[in-house]
Each structure stands twice: as C-alpha cells, then as structure tokens.
Simulated scan of single mutants.
Amino acid sequence: MTPLERNLAAYGEYHQDRRNVATHLVGIPMIFLAVVVLLSRPVWDVGLPLTPAMLLALGAGLFYVRLDLRFGAVMALLLALCCGAGLELSARDTAIWLGWGAGLFLTGWVIQFIGHAFEGRKPAFLDDLRSLLVGPLFVVAELAFLLGLRREVQAAIRH
C-alpha cells in the first residue's frame, strides 16, 4: 500500500457506516472552512496579505501533495478557496467573522458526533491526531469514488 492508501484505509476503519460517512461529507468541510476562517486573523501586510491560515494551508498542502499529486492538487485548490473566503470574512466586523467561524466549527462537530453515534465508535483523531488532516482528504476521496474516479485507490483501501 502507498502512504495515501494506508492513511485512507486507517481513517476508513473508523468510518464503515454509510450514515457516518454521509455526516462526514457535510461536517468535515464545515470544520475545514471554519478553521481557516478562524485563523484568518490577524492579517499581516507583507506586500500581499498573509494570515496564520495561509501558513497552515501551505503546510497542509505540502502534506497532501506528498501523499498524492492528484488528490493533493485538489486539496491545495480547496485550501486556497478557503483562504480566500477566510480573508474575505476576516475583513468583516468581528461578530461576522467570529460568528461564521465558530458557527461552522460547532455545527460541523455536532454533525460529526452524530455520525459517530451511528458508527458506535469514537472519532479517529482520538487515537491519531494525523487523522485531523486525513479527514478532509477522506471526503475528497469519497467524492472522487462516487464520481467513478481513482478506482485503483478505492480498491486498495477497501480490501
């Protein structure tokens, strides 16, 4: 197995119930965006705006690209879009920025824990913090599989 396949298979072990997977398809993107929004302040002007979220996105993007170039490119694009949204919201009134960030974060986690109630198993991140990065990749992979893409990865992780 490749490192991508090992990470997705390990994460998938905690997500066998289709209802749990469905909640993750909603909750994880909400949390993913929320973290970026919340880390979009402060904004440092270094010729271009720079935020803690952008620095985190750079590191996460490198993690994803090292696992798999194609999935990594999708994840990097999603990170860039989230950083753009975060930058836009960070320019708004504090209540708007914080309301969106905290609201998405809390709602996303509630949805996640509902999914794990269906699963009857604790979230993967309680055993391995790396799964906090693998979760968003899992969502992208599941969507790719639903579209009939990356069947070789799907076959390798579902043996």
Rank of each mutant, 00 (worst) to 15 (best):
L4I: 03
E5L: 05
N7A: 12
A10G: 07
Y14L: 02
D17L: 06
R18K: 15
R18V: 01
N20V: 00
G27D: 04
I28L: 09
M30D: 01
I31V: 12
I31Q: 10
V35W: 02
V36W: 09
V36G: 10
V36A: 12
W44I: 05
W44G: 09
D45K: 13
G47L: 03
G47H: 09
P49L: 06
M54G: 14
L55G: 15
L56I: 09
G59N: 11
F63I: 00
Y64A: 09
Y64R: 14
R66I: 01
R66P: 01
L67S: 11
D68A: 05
A80C: 11
C83Q: 11
A85M: 08
L87P: 14
L89M: 04
S90M: 00
A91G: 14
D93R: 10
W100E: 02
A102E: 06
A102R: 12
L104H: 08
L106Q: 04
L106H: 09
T107Q: 03
W109C: 07
W109M: 08
I111F: 01
I111D: 00
F113Q: 05
F113C: 04
H116Y: 15
A117S: 08
F118Q: 10
E119T: 04
E119M: 07
R121G: 03
R121E: 05
K122I: 01
P123V: 02
F125G: 09
F125C: 07
F125E: 04
L126K: 15
L126N: 08
L132Q: 09
L133W: 13
P136V: 02
L137T: 08
A141N: 05
L143C: 06
A144K: 12
L146P: 00
L147Y: 13
L147R: 15
G148P: 15
L149F: 13
L149E: 06
Q154E: 14
H159C: 00
